[in-house]
Design a binder for these strands. Structure first.
Lengths: 209, 209
DNA sequence: GTATGAATCAAACGAACGTATGAAAGAGGA
DNA sequence: TCCTCTTTCATACGTTCGTTTGATTCATAC
């Protein structure tokens, strides 16, 4: 197996370290050292640390967004009113599935996603683009159609809930468990649990008042 | 109104800045400047930046944990098998309610909680203590009793889900909304939506296989 | 061979960081 | 007033950070 070029090795190292220590907790020196590259290579290949982060995020998020989009297309081609459980699966499933090659069981990707979402760095706001917004709006419309009793505000609330559960769940898989707390389960079981949990939550009747 | 002492002003400023920019994104200089104190005051009153963060977290988390604990006591004094909805409310409610004085609508607290949970800094692991673990285990036992069909692993999964939804939800209230996405709602409505959403999720039958 | 462009390298820059120091200021009792 | 203890202050130390520079290496085309 041929060793990948410097640019790719930096992307791999950065993805791993950003996921483990966050954007601000990762130094360019640590990235280039892990990648076996020179310190100046980041500037040469990416321009700056922030642009490197943007490239890392793009590489991770794009296949997830594409899978979410394809899943919705497939669902809507069959029927305009798919079951809630299948909408949930099409939306949340790719967050469990889509992993770049070399990702150790999804650890890097999941931590990175949470890092993107929760990083208070100003740069983080621009790390996702219009494609992600578009997919989210299409799912919103589909959910609104099959859950007509919900106000738009409450539906957005619930969609954020889907994201919260999948993201935090996958994050905690790779943190040491708290004492007395059973270690989280990765893989197929967690995916099934999440779909069950979220389908019930999405299907709940809105509160009366 | 008398201006509080330097120590309190530093705590307030630190809570706000840590919540907005994370632990690593906040400098001691920024904290003391916002507090109107001298740079060396952090070292004098708290010893180090990490110990200041621990003091901030303690001040925020303690009333929440206490309220969760009291709510469970009250519930179990009535019946050993409370409804799931009331367990959910007792556990998640304080995350919406307990706010230190001066908190602008809970913004600082909520962001800080998410910052604690998601900060990749090693120091963050020790920011919560045994009291939080203890409360969580008591709720686990109560949920296990009224949801006998769930394996311990799946129940832990669902409890993490409760936390994920409340934390991320409250986080997003104070971020700018994505384009096309209705702005999140704070306060009583969000609380009611969360209880509904999470009660349904917790009550779901476990997946068959 | 040799010229050319991309890629890599060691080294250094200025800025910002957390922390430490010792003097100055203030409060309270003898 | 004088002494003592707490608190505040300006300042500096040593590190680490992201970035830049200019030379060097290397493959390829002439």
């Amino acid at each position: 197996m041929a060793t990948p070029d410097t640019r790719t090795q930096i992307l791999d190292a950065a993805e791993r370290l950003f996921a483990e220590h966050g954007y601000r907790g990762t130094s360019v020196r640590a990235i280039t050292k892990l990648a076996g590259a020179n310190l100046a290579a980041v500037g040469y290949h990416f321009g700056s640390k922030a642009e490197l982060m943007a490239a890392v995020v793009r590489r991770v998020v794009e296949p997830i967004t594409a899978a979410q989009c394809a899943g919705l297309d497939k669902l809507l081609a069959r029927t305009p009113d798919p079951p809630v459980s299948e909408l949930v699966e099409a939306f949340a499933g790719p967050l469990f599935d889509e992993m770049p090659a070399g990702d150790e069981g999804g650890a890097r990707t999941s931590r990175l996603i949470v890092t993107i979402l929760s990083d208070p760095a100003e740069e983080a706001r621009s790390w996702t683009g219009p494609a992600e917004d578009s997919v989210r709006e299409r799912y919103f419309a589909a959910f609104a159609r099959v859950l007509p009793g919900l106000s738009p505000e409450e539906l957005w609330f619930r969609m954020r809930g889907i994201f919260a559960v999948t993201a935090v769940e996958r994050l905690q898989v790779h943190q040491q468990p708290s004492p007395g707390c059973v270690s989280p389960v990765a893989g197929e079981a967690a995916r099934r649990w999440a779909i069950t949990f979220l389908t019930a939550a999405m299907s709940a009747s809105p509160p009366l008042t």
